[in-house]
Design a protein around this nucleic acid. Structure first.
Lengths: 125, 125
DNA sequence: GTACGACTTAAACCTTGGTTTAAGTCAACA
DNA sequence: TGTTGACTTAAACCAAGGTTTAAGTCGTAC
């Protein structure tokens, strides 16, 4: 199987190496192997996990919760229902969060319009 | 003019008093008056500012940038163009951020579907 | 054989956005 | 008059999510 160094993985996902180490230490990135010299070996499996970590992180799932998810991944197939449940709840949260942002954005857009009106009016003074 | 205590303002906006004090100290909440005893008096003006602060904060504008906005508010009408410009840029940022979250959400939804398939398959074993 | 670049670690450090604490002031009510 | 309750302050504290530092180990290219 193809393995990648931490530097390669970091470059591929555009994540600092220090962050990858931090994630591994936090338990977000299980199954990382090592070569004889103790260097991390990232396989396709890690890259796939990194993919899902990225999705979760960028939709604001806290690291502790991602760790819970990964603990379930490590535990095996018996936890698929739990994982599914977590992802479904997270999906709801993300949709709610987006809806909320859109709501607050309306307030900002009103302010924008008022300023634009004010500026158009100002040109006639 | 009607004035509100910090406790009333906090209750109306569901923001801790400590946070209102923190915002004022940071410069996010200008023009707060005081009574003879040194207690804060929040007028309609503050409530309106709190409204916009809430919109900006909940769309992830950093506090430093909100402070810049408020500094311009304090400076007066000569800064309306700057404020408008900031809000327009912020609006773009928020829309981008929402689009990005929706993109990452897709990855999560794929994972959800795979788990659901796996569970449905499992029932037939 | 040595210097370089990529890696390793633990621990210290950093920023953001608040929250908590401790000590004090004041108004109003019993 | 004294004791609540709502307020005040500065300063300490906190959690999350990393980043930086310092010291060390390799493999390889010169």
């Amino acid at each position: 199987m193809k393995y990648y160094t931490i530097g390669e993985a970091a470059a591929m996902y555009n994540i600092p190496e220090s962050t990858l180490r931090f994630y591994e230490k936090k338990g977000l990135l299980p199954f990382v192997e090592r070569d004889e010299a103790g260097r991390r070996l990232f396989s396709e499996r890690q890259l796939a996990l990194l993919q899902i970590i990225t999705c979760l992180k960028n939709t604001n799932m806290p690291i502790n919760q991602i760790k819970q998810y990964m603990d379930w991944v490590v535990e095996g197939n018996s936890t698929i229902e739990k994982r599914l449940d977590m992802l479904l709840k997270h999906k709801r949260n993300v949709l709610d969060e987006i809806a909320l942002m859109q709501e607050y954005l309306k307030g900002i857009e009103e302010k924008i319009e008022r300023y634009q009106k004010q500026l158009r009016g100002g040109e006639n003074l």
